[in-house]
Design a protein around this nucleic acid. Sequence first.
DNA 1: CGTACTATTGATAGATATCAACGCTGGTGG
DNA 2: CCACCAGCGTTGATATCTATCAATAGTACG
Lengths: 252, 252
Amino acid sequence: MASNRAVARMDNLLTRKLEAFGPLYVSDKQLLDDVIGTSRIVGSGIDLAREGDAPNEVHLILEGFPADINPSQGPAAHHGLPRARGLLRSACLHSQGNDHSIGTLSPCTVVDIPRARILKLTERPRILRALWWATLVDEATLREWLVNIGARDGLQRVAHLICELLLRLQTVGLANGNTYELPLTQAELGDTMGLSTVHMNRVIQQLRAKELITLKAQKLVILDVARLKKLSGFNPNYLHLREQNGAAENHV
Amino acid sequence: MASNRAVARMDNLLTRKLEAFGPLYVSDKQLLDDVIGTSRIVGSGIDLAREGDAPNEVHLILEGFPADINPSQGPAAHHGLPRARGLLRSACLHSQGNDHSIGTLSPCTVVDIPRARILKLTERPRILRALWWATLVDEATLREWLVNIGARDGLQRVAHLICELLLRLQTVGLANGNTYELPLTQAELGDTMGLSTVHMNRVIQQLRAKELITLKAQKLVILDVARLKKLSGFNPNYLHLREQNGAAENHV
DNA sequence: CGTACTATTGATAGATATCAACGCTGGTGG
DNA sequence: CCACCAGCGTTGATATCTATCAATAGTACG
């Protein structure tokens, strides 16, 4: 489709994400370019909420592995490390409540969008509508995580995460066949899914023993995607919402 | 505030929910009245997604206890019952993906909002903006649930749920002091939180033994709110987002 | 080489699921 | 009225999953 026309400009990641939910005006895209312009790169293990941040600021993660961070009241707090929950997708918009925040599990490119700028964005009807759909999709992913953590045992949870990451990263072109970079420590993975480090390790070894995956030097290889999906009860529908909405946009 | 002016009309629940995020035009409210007009009442244990429903239909639950339902692939499927996850708030908007749906754990009043109507609604900037904020708040609640289920043990989870329901129901005026109706079976509660029926029962008995609650004949009494909140690590901030946004609206 | 982080392994304890059984309650048909 | 039944709550016994503690091995890096 896009290849049929001459494209005078390169859309940024945010624009591409939002335009999946419906077309935007050129002026919209310029506004989005302005927003993206302020991106910063942060290292691993950083809390994205900085001192003095206004609550309800929105963070946009362009690249990397961010995760929800537990407020420091949890049992894991005495480790000195906050406890991560729920691995977020890249190119994800995240509202900054005052009850919890996001941390980086790997180096990330992020944009901090202050309240004033959000209001500016939401004055554009098409941007606003895309933002809403995007949030609905994120919500669907969270619901899937809820099921994932609540109803499956460790082995299935980890298998599910591996499947989800494969699809996500393939979408963004960051997977090489059934192989991708997983720059996370076993401890971090465990925290993300509510498993202890030791148990996480044993689960990984189970997956290796079943000849489902290979994991070495931050490189993950899925040896049998079909069997892994079956084991985890993986159903990719919840990640596909965006295509459906994009298609439905034709009706408007 | 509202009591200072003569109010010619009674706002419906949806209108009230959305207006918490910013003022709406009278014509907006009329449109919302039209939407609400089509509500239906369903019994307990019903799946809100009906045959022939278009995907991405949105359901609005005006009253009752709805919950996420697992697709029938889970281990609990052979019970004949789908497995519930994540108790949803009343007056909650829920997008209908094709990967999962919502069921009722008690009689509910619901409105099914078809795609065409959603599009109509999202043509109103103020409604759309309120919808977006509302979705962001729902997302925050889901994140809290993720932490709740992933990081706390059964006792804390249940305590947390009881605290959350108290605040929610007080907000809607459905709590009587520290007492409220909980028309859910122990098995349903357990499913909701990822606990077996038996264990749910034992957790409840622990709470009783600690003289924190009373639960009999669907009536729940919290004997010591402060101690219950402390036990569960309950932090109501994530439910307060709406007030913050409402206040911020003054800046627009 | 030594230090620190990560991965791995073993042993043990706690949390939770599962299976089975029993009592209570409310309805229903005889 | 009674016998029966179904759903819910409760209890005990046991098995499985997972956390925790402790120790060892591998690996990167100065």
